[in-house]
Design a protein around this nucleic acid. Sequence first.
DNA 1: CGCAGCACCTTTTTT
DNA 2: AGGTGCTGCG
Length: 751
Amino acid sequence: MDVTYILDPLNETQREVVSASSDHALVLAGAGSGKTRVLVHRIAWLVETGQVPPHGILAVTFTNKAAMEMRSRIEGMLNRSLGAMWVGTFHGLAHRMLRLHWKDTDLPEGFQILDSEDQSRMVRRVIRTMGVDDSKYPPKQAQWFINTQKDEGLRPKHIDDHNDTWTDQMLRIYQSYEEACQRGGLVDFAELLLRAHELLRDRDDLLRHYQRRFSHLLVDEFQDTNTIQYAWIRLIAGDTGRLFMVGDDDQSIYGWRGARIENIHRFPRDFPEVHTYRLERNYRSTANILAAANAVIANNRSRLGKNLWTSDENGEPIYLYVAFNEQEEAEFMVERIRQWIEDGGHRDHVAVLYRTSAQSRVFEERLLASGIPYRVHGGLRFYERAEIKDALAYLRLVVNRYDDAAFERVINQPPRGIGMRTLETIRSEARSQVISLWSASEALLGRSELLPRATGAVANFLRLIQDLASDTPINDDQPSQTAPGKPLYEVVDRTLQKSGLLRHYKTDKSDRAEARVENLEELVSAVRQFERNEVAYQINVEQDGIDPLAAFLSHAALEAGEARTQGKSVHLMTLHAAKGLEFPMIFLCGLEEGLFPHQRSASNQKQLEEERRLCYVGMTRAKRILYLSYAESRRLHGSEYYQRPSRFIDEIPAKLIQEVRARNSEKSRFGGTKFASKKKTAKTHSTWKTNQGMKDMETQWPPGQSVLHPSFGEGVILCYEGHGPHMRVQVSFSKVGTKWLVLSYAKLQAI
DNA sequence: CGCAGCACCTTTTTT
DNA sequence: AGGTGCTGCG
């Protein structure tokens, strides 16, 4: 087979990597060095040289988007069907394995996936059922605890509470939560991975089957894998599978959600004959942008080491804009975008990146006022909307009567006269008999133990679900029988009608209700789309023979449905969301200490390095033009902050940076002057007495002011927040470090 | 049952 | 500040 078409478009290193013959490969692929390209060409090369049939390949990514892109690019290259190749996300592939082997996993055939919101509700319910004080043990923390343990591959029995009350309580919650999920046939995201791992670990025959089948395993974004993901891959690889891991330690930005960068370090120790390759040639950015990004990341100590280079020209300098406040920062940015468009630039070639999602609002307001179309990435997605989840909950009950999470969600949605009293009765019956809410309801009805009014309502509800089920291609008595000729979208449509959901929102005349009706109608077309040409349908239903409705529900949970882009818009997103993307013009905003790097990461070296990598990721998104900006004052959750410029700015060689002023100079000069004079006033009068009013109190403690504290000693004011009696200052003490002090209590003295 | 008012929280987010 | 979720009341 002629494979020159696969190797020819590559540079020398890429070619070497793609045609590597060593057992295992670790590819450290810098930003913009052709990471996806290498993966795609590697797979194409393996298949075209006849080393492995598509069937023998397992390729894993983190996001559906990346998986889709990889799949379609391979398909485009090979011009043949990849039906038998496993390409998908960790969660998607784990799910596929569990569906195929549900009998071996102690799960019901119709098991369903809990998304984070479902999980959070479930945890709250469990805590309450246990009679635990949820103010002492907040559901959010318990949820975090559970997920963290699962990410590490730990079940309650593996965890030692070290005689710590808190850990012990968390363990109990974890335990009960697991039992509740098991009873309801429910699986959260982390559970998908953990179960898939346990399935292979405990079933020799299955493990051998998959080990024999997948002779080549390829992992994208290796630096983002967590413990259980890496363990799963190692298990399938066994002694014979060949691993091809692609990642970039400098772009590891998900440590906070369990990603183990150590996996990269461990890999060569876990497997013999790992060849390490470095892709350092960047095809994306100008030399100036790269030099700046390299300079920033060089400040990190824990690195495998890599230096990106380009043959591209220097290009424009890095622009830095110092704004008076966040309003002016946005104003400047919008003005520059306006010019860009005026000069013929495309709107969607521009991205505004920020550290926290709350920062988007000011930019949105300004863009809106200027009539520039924009799109905010992230946020609530289609399948996460309340009304959609209500509709899905009905369908979940149809598939699986014991799904308590779904039961709770819709038993009184739309309202059908089942109040807290009745629900509590059902819950307590379920609790005492250790059965599902559905079974508890049946039992209570059978014994006529509900209030007369509730009796009818509950009976109607149960009958409704049964009616829907008998309408539906799947039902409890004949689980695997698919009714011919009834499309799924009709089933969904009927569910919306019969459940009364649609009517409920149609009669509601609030402004939101209209959008909800539209969304529900959109759901029907989403289902139709799913049946017609979604890859997930082809694989799960047509190939694996999974029930269509169950497959659709999983699809909805696993792929929450990115909002559609409408036309060409300026992109607004967090730095995290920007990973993997590139734009000709980037605005990197809010470069202030405390915001970026974020306050909560400032205290510890490891977290600080992750912030720096985030900065590196942001900068390397830019192809031609990179704007940096910070605001001297910023309004954040209700109070004013004055912070120093981010240390990351100092880490960029000054010669690469050009400070810019707004073209709309009159206004900004006015703002700047005003601010400067205010600062001067503050310094001159720093000995004012506090009884001169709140305004004076603020000006008495300007950032930079040296102070003396009776017990902490000398320090310098970093910033302040709040007003009047709530006003607090952050002081960096030379002896005891940084502390927040409430001014009205602390006996601070200006020196 | 629905609504109004109040406490609470607030980094990053995919699956 | 602003949004969310819970409580208590009508």
